[in-house]
Nucleic acid binder design. Structure first.
Lengths: 316, 316
DNA sequence: TATATTTATGTAACTGGTTACATAATTAGT
DNA sequence: ACTAATTATGTAACCAGTTACATAAATATA
């Protein structure tokens, strides 16, 4: 069974399941060996009851990490075997108070010997291993609690894909993409306005020839994001960041951040004192991106765009 | 959920199951995230097929540690999703050869990216833990392969119970036990003989008063084993080890060994040159115990017992 | 060469859990 | 004081595996 050696970490779930199963199987035999009339799967519930006067189904479930349904079933089985008793709580009609019966307490006595032997067997096992499984499980539980495996994989994916994104300067072949990517989000959230058509249809004359810049983000050769830096005729501001668009199919790959920081870098290289931009508070991810890039909200100015309800600036 | 902290090692199965479950759950979401049309539970089978031209159900099962039934089901599901193909083996009509379909190979391409990200996520996770779960699992698999958990617990039990056994000298109150324990095994395997009754009914006059010794093994105050050292009137032998009996309900606690070595010790203290005994080869555990105590088979001598077919001696 | 054993696979039923949904009792918010 | 939300529990159906048993093909053996 070299599978786990070659398949690597992808099979960790499978591997854990197998180990769990092997241990559970032996656990069954161990209970039989000690002649304690207890099923292994009852143990967590039984243990909780042995160490508490009376507990509700839900309380047990929460403590041992099972679903309440599972606990409910187990309790039912144990009642049938005379190990526990159920009693409705007087002060709360929903609660089903479960307690160990006399027979259950008697079993608990005998169980303690088993606990000792299992404990020392595992102790001995751990002692002959260089890596402590028990501690390792505890750590994983903790680490996964902090940030789930899913989250961690998502982050890795983003990181890897981000490395596959390249930012290149605009050229004729990206004109269609420049228009389409912008039209896509604008018409999703708002309506295309006259000023949009002017800039999107004539990027060269309206942006580049006037001393502006357009950058394109490529993912596997395909343009998936664009961003423009437009020269402003304004005494207060040198450039405007505008027409930033990222394909919705490419969200979550930091493309916006890569484009944004590249454009800011270019502006700095061009000797800009500042950058201005207009947006809408509806576009939360965009606003938060601008924040991360260093932009700050500024008081209202005139704008040709109806959809603009927030204005920001970045001072170098 | 402090359960695992207090319940200790007895709950290791439960704890492993919970961790496994959490990981499996996230695994499902990860497959969804990558849009690879693969169910997590298919992975081990899929992986094996991706790395081998064609495999039989059983071969896959053996390699990934599932039952063949499970593999059979998984293959059926994957066939329905067009990922694999089945084909009867021409040279062996029982074999069902399974291979990846073109679609399956295509999925394999996309899966590789996922493998990379999952691999690095787990790598990163391991790096931030001080105890290496992966290695620990490997070690446990190995150690449990060597000696199962059941075996280890059995050994612990024996050891602990052995420590609770005390060997005490015979006194009047053990006369009944001395008789009953011996009669129990003799009449199970053979028939009580005249010589038996003589010794068992009058231990004082027949054994002790003639310079012999009787030892009793107590487990929780109860006599559970007996053994006699009888002075022999023989030029060759000083003492005979006889009437050794251990309650069948107390087997597997090394009581025989404790009694035997105590009696050998006493004989040595009495200045014996040797010990003689008679037994029957049918009683395998007894013979092997005598061997462990240092007894060797000797040639035939006269004996009052019909059941005797082997004679042994221990030379100091 | 006929028969017994082993091997490959499938079907049915079980197991130890789960989620989804339902219901009744309690608590909170106006 | 009433309605909405929450909590405790149960029932039904599902899930990913298992074992037990059945069958057919191949191999070993007398």
């Amino acid at each position: 069974m070299s599978f786990f050696d070659t398949a690597g970490k992808m099979a960790i779930g499978s591997r854990l399941r197998l180990l769990t199963e092997k241990i559970t199987e032996d656990a069954g035999k161990i209970y039989a060996l000690f002649g304690v009339g207890l099923q292994p799967k009852w143990f967590p519930v039984f243990y909780m009851l042995a160490n508490n006067e009376a507990l509700t189904i839900t309380a047990i479930a929460k403590e041992i990490g099972h679903s309440h349904v599972s606990v409910s079933k187990i309790v039912r089985e144990m009642v049938k075997h005379g190990l526990v008793k159920e009693k409705k709580d007087k002060s709360d009609g929903r609660r089903n108070m479960v307690t160990l019966s006399a027979a259950g307490r008697e079993v608990n006595q005998r169980l303690s010997e088993q606990c000792v032997d299992v404990g020392s067997a595992i102790e001995e096992l751990s002692a002959s291993a260089t890596h402590n499984l028990w501690e390792a499980i505890g750590e994983w539980e903790f680490l996964l609690e902090q940030r789930s495996l899913l989250r961690r994989v998502m982050d890795q994916k983003k990181k890897r894909e981000g490395q596959e994104v390249t930012i290149v300067p605009y050229s004729r072949k990206y004109q269609q993409a420049f228009r389409d990517l912008n039209e896509e989000w604008i018409s999703t959230y708002f309506k295309m306005e006259a000023a949009d058509y002017k800039a999107l249809d004539n990027p060269k004359s309206h942006i580049l020839d006037k001393g502006g810049i357009i950058l394109v983000a490529l993912y596997k050769e395909e343009p998936v994001g664009v961003c423009a830096l437009i020269k402003m005729k304004d005494p207060d501001y040198d450039y405007e960041l505008a027409k930033m668009a990222v394909s919705p199919r490419m969200q979550g790959k930091s493309i916006g951040w890569l484009l944004g920081s590249a454009i800011v870098e270019q502006a700095r290289a061009l000797g800009a004192r500042n950058i201005y931009l207009e947006s809408n508070t509806m576009l939360k991810p965009a606003i938060s991106l601008y924040h991360k890039l260093g932009f700050q909200k500024v008081a209202g100015r005139a704008t040709p765009y109806e959809r603009c309800n927030i204005q920001m600036e970045l001072i170098f």
